[in-house]
Design a protein around this nucleic acid. Structure first.
Lengths: 140, 140
DNA sequence: GTTAGTGCAAAATCTTTGCATATTT
DNA sequence: AAATATGCAAAGATTTTGCACTAAC
């Protein structure tokens, strides 16, 4: 508990019960999770928490670099995950919408090449791979 | 004009004035464009067109594979572009939000490898690269 | 003439904001 | 005590839908 308090202090934000709940949840989750899901899971721990608080917390976390925001698939709802400072990507199943991690990033060398050939200064990239997970594949 | 009529017929949808306007616009545009921008540009040609019609047309085009939908950056508004059947990606400038095309895709071999190592059947991927374009880079 | 598509208005969904109250420092 | 964060309710923004009317086939 002490270390989380400290983490918040480092980022210059107050250690509230609600922020601790959201942080704990993100630490448990291994995958990006939607705001709705975050809200429901946190609400199970603290009935009184409000959706707008969750939005504000996630937006603060994203600004501070504690969390990462992304938009997966065509769904237009925001997903968040803890910023583990490890560069990774996801495999997303088009059938069951399961998300799997890929730890290796195939783009490191490519970005350097791109930088040379286009004079564009590459800062980051977003890569998601879509397909069918082993279980769904066998159902087809 | 004849060929566009024919295109719509092939897809089993009617060749309406509104669809022709949206298709023409997407053919002119070299980059993904937001629904709002599409609506305004089309409205300049036909004052009476309605935003919901544009949404419906874009959604039909996407279902039929005539257009591609994507969400760029963190912005949560949908962008559309003509499906030119050429696999490509975009460079997006974090400063001026300009979008540039990359024609080469660095992931073809990687996808095959991934398929072997994860048993996930890869269908497609989404890759966008963020950074600073040459003009903005020199301003910093 | 029938079917599909459009315009309009209203609803639905997701996200943000103003303000009084409560909590943290 | 002062500053910050929360809850609630209301508003914003984006997208979708029901329905009567219109255009395409």
């Amino acid at each position: 508990m002490r270390d989380k308090q400290h983490l918040f202090k480092e980022f210059g934000i107050r250690a509230t019960k609600q922020r601790l709940l959201v942080l704990d949840l993100l630490m448990e989750e291994q995958m990006p999770i939607s705001v709705e899901q975050i809200f429901l899971k946190v609400k199970a721990q603290d009935e009184s928490i409000n959706l707008s608080t969750v939005y504000r917390i996630l937006s603060t976390f994203t600004e501070k670099g504690i969390a990462l925001k992304s938009l997966l698939g065509e769904s237009s709802v925001a997903y968040y995950e803890l910023n583990r400072m490890v560069h990774k990507h996801h495999l997303i199943c088009l059938s069951c919408h399961k998300i799997m991690n890929i730890n290796h990033c195939p783009l490191e060398n490519y970005e350097k090449e791109l930088q040379r050939t286009t004079a564009f200064e590459v800062v980051s990239h977003k890569l998601e791979i879509y397909g069918y997970c082993p279980e769904c594949k066998s159902k087809h």
